Amino acid sequence: MDQVAAQEPRVLLVDDDPDVLVELSEGLAALGLPVRTADTAVVALDLVQRHEDLQVIVTDLQMPRIDGIELLQKLSMRKRSRPLAAIVVTGHASLDRAVGALRLKAVDFLQKPVLPEEVAHAVHRAFSILEDEVASSGEEGTGETLATARPNYLRALVAARADRDAIFQAGLFSDPAWDMLLDLAMAEATNRPISVTSLCIASGAPTTTALRRIDDLKDAGLIDRVPDPLDRRRVIVRLTAEGRGRMEAFVQRQAARLGLSLE
């Protein structure tokens, strides 16, 4: 029984294109990552409900009836005995939709056409993030710890940005530099590496503008770019010691004004 349980697929692949499902599922299986597959979000929701072994969902965004964004929204409202990490895959026509997916705590973003090897790298990163979260939750202490307080506060700041965009005219606050720093602080607080591509998409700015702001932030000594140790084709963006210190000062000052303690 234990051997059977150990072989249960931990990855759910969701795409309405049968060719994509076959190509990626067979490719991932050959790489030692057996998967369950779903050709609709409805099927995916049922599989997640019935299989607690699932830990990572890899979903396309453009799907009929219930798209990938709504699927992640529905999953975020469900309680499970173990967390479920999300990886989103989309084509050029729906890059803007990826912003919503990243706001729903997606741990990675992949752009079509995508190879099984790329998906496998993203899945292994997701497993590592989940392991870190489990280790953090097992630490001694009661109530909201520092490990959860800071990410939750940063999530509130990110949510405030979404509220701002919903209430005010879209594009009114167009410079992405601050949004990038906030995304990087959130990524660091949740042990989630963020790539140049993901950072550009999450900023909501045109790619050329976002890349210029990344260069500006690097020249200011606030961020750095390093190769992903798991995938040399991917470049990770992270805060420098200077950038981390300044963001920490900002977070602490804002929390103090609200009477919150993140110490």
Rank of each mutant, 00 (worst) to 15 (best):
residue 179 D to G: 04
residue 211 L to R: 15
residue 182 L to F: 09
residue 153 Y to I: 03
residue 9 P to N: 06
residue 178 W to R: 10
residue 172 L to M: 15
residue 49 Q to I: 01
residue 53 D to C: 03
residue 230 L to I: 08
residue 87 I to N: 04
residue 13 L to H: 06
residue 5 A to M: 06
residue 141 G to E: 00
residue 132 D to G: 13
residue 115 L to A: 15
residue 48 V to S: 04
residue 196 V to P: 09
residue 99 V to E: 11
residue 93 A to N: 11
residue 135 A to Y: 08
residue 113 P to N: 11
residue 203 S to M: 01
residue 181 L to P: 03
residue 125 R to M: 13
residue 74 K to C: 07
residue 143 G to I: 08
residue 144 E to H: 12
residue 191 N to G: 10
residue 108 D to I: 00
residue 81 S to C: 14
residue 58 V to D: 02
residue 28 L to F: 02
residue 76 S to T: 01
residue 154 L to S: 01
residue 17 D to M: 10
residue 155 R to S: 09
residue 16 D to K: 04
residue 31 L to M: 12
residue 221 G to D: 10
residue 153 Y to A: 00
residue 145 T to V: 10
residue 156 A to N: 13
residue 203 S to C: 06
residue 112 K to E: 05
residue 158 V to I: 11
residue 142 T to V: 02
residue 16 D to P: 07
residue 227 P to S: 05
residue 63 M to P: 02
residue 184 L to Q: 01
residue 46 D to I: 02
residue 38 A to L: 05
residue 158 V to C: 11
residue 222 L to V: 04
residue 247 M to C: 15
residue 136 S to V: 01
residue 89 V to Y: 03
residue 202 A to N: 06
residue 82 R to K: 15
residue 263 E to K: 13
residue 174 S to N: 08
residue 102 L to D: 09
residue 87 I to H: 01
residue 76 S to H: 05
